[in-house]
Design a protein around this nucleic acid. Sequence first.
DNA 1: CACTGATTTAAGGTTGGCGTAAGGTTTTCT
DNA 2: AGAAAACCTTACGCCAACCTTAAATCAGTG
Lengths: 237, 237
Amino acid sequence: MDEIKHKKLLIVDDEDELRQMVEKILRKEGFTRIFQAATCAEAIHICQTVKPDLTILDVMLPDGDGFSLLSTIRQTSDMPVLFLTARGEDEDRVLGLGLGADDYIVKPFLPREFVLRLMAILRRVYLPPQPKKYPVFQLGERTVDLESGTVRHGGNEWPLTAKELALLAKLYDQRNRIVTSDALCQAAWGDDYYGLENTLMVHIRRIREKIEDNPSHPHYLLTVRGLGYKLMVKEEE
Amino acid sequence: MDEIKHKKLLIVDDEDELRQMVEKILRKEGFTRIFQAATCAEAIHICQTVKPDLTILDVMLPDGDGFSLLSTIRQTSDMPVLFLTARGEDEDRVLGLGLGADDYIVKPFLPREFVLRLMAILRRVYLPPQPKKYPVFQLGERTVDLESGTVRHGGNEWPLTAKELALLAKLYDQRNRIVTSDALCQAAWGDDYYGLENTLMVHIRRIREKIEDNPSHPHYLLTVRGLGYKLMVKEEE
DNA sequence: CACTGATTTAAGGTTGGCGTAAGGTTTTCT
DNA sequence: AGAAAACCTTACGCCAACCTTAAATCAGTG
């Protein structure tokens, strides 16, 4: 699925405890290929052998500093580098970014923030932006992103399944119009499908659970009894 | 009918394995007419003979590159083209899209994503959104939208039911003319209906409650005693 | 091959659109 | 004027269409 999670990550830091903590955070997040180094020498060795896809680099190291290590790395690779720096060392960050680091994060950090920044880098580098086929649109408070297949609301984010996506895409194509149940079935299953008509209802229900405040009293995905459904979208300029 | 699945697809790639994999994915998805080419020469030949509806094109080919092939194709056809490109070749994508490619996908790709994008292109090109059959029209203060099945007035919005829609659509088709009760019944119930003639009146009443200021003294949906009804619509330029 | 999540099936509950009916009003005809 | 015909209005009950939930099945993955 998420190929980002299969990227090779290298953690370079002299504190055992911190390395372990970072590794634990990352494993929990789903990353599987994590390497550690405590010194510059070790780090260079690992870079040459396993060729990590991203390096997390502490500024302070026993046998040199992170910046010179970065320079060394940069001679042979343009892999992204995320700096770890102690609080208040503002110059460090400027210097690091100037040398070609991709981001920095201040210790102590929140695991969630750390992961988010790291993922952002990986995505930026390894999943270049792609042309959008479907726009992002609002349903009241909620943001529906058909391209990425998610519904966001507040801090939360619900993924949409394949069928939900197919149905919502069809409904969005015909937004503010009545879409017959037949048309919806066709969009999701093709013309040669003979399942129960109930199946569609169940999927509609699931979609409503993600896009409606109260799925039983929908405001956006409405039933048109005897005909089908309609998705009411307010278009703004 | 899902016409999309009967479109002719051409896969151009020099790696046998990848071609086979793509074909397998597409067949599983329900596509039946899939052609393969390993070289530019082959591809051009197939384009001329079978005239595919969409081409999946690798950027790197043994006897030329995908871009020049695209140019050649574009001289005689505007069929949609989906590029395959290796990771990180950002310029490729820009160049490809600039030359008239419809989308690109980075190898290695997820089967699901690949199919979704391909379907998106086919839908966009071969199933253009149908034009509105019914315009939105005004009845005094009220706005009637037969496509979405609603009547708006001020901030409020009343939904129309299936029967109401059928009748209003018929009345609108024959707007400013008399429509016989028979014709209306036929539009709403088909030829073989033997209910009370009162039923039609009840539905007319319900429509009036949604489109008239005073349903008992209609201004727009008028009774023509002995014949039927007529919908008076002022057409504006 | 067991596990996970997505999808379909199944079964029972709910409801809103629709048709019916009954009484009222307006128009037309004699 | 009185009667008949055409149409209006209101209310009520039914049942197909729809909803809801849970359990079974399927499909992909390590």
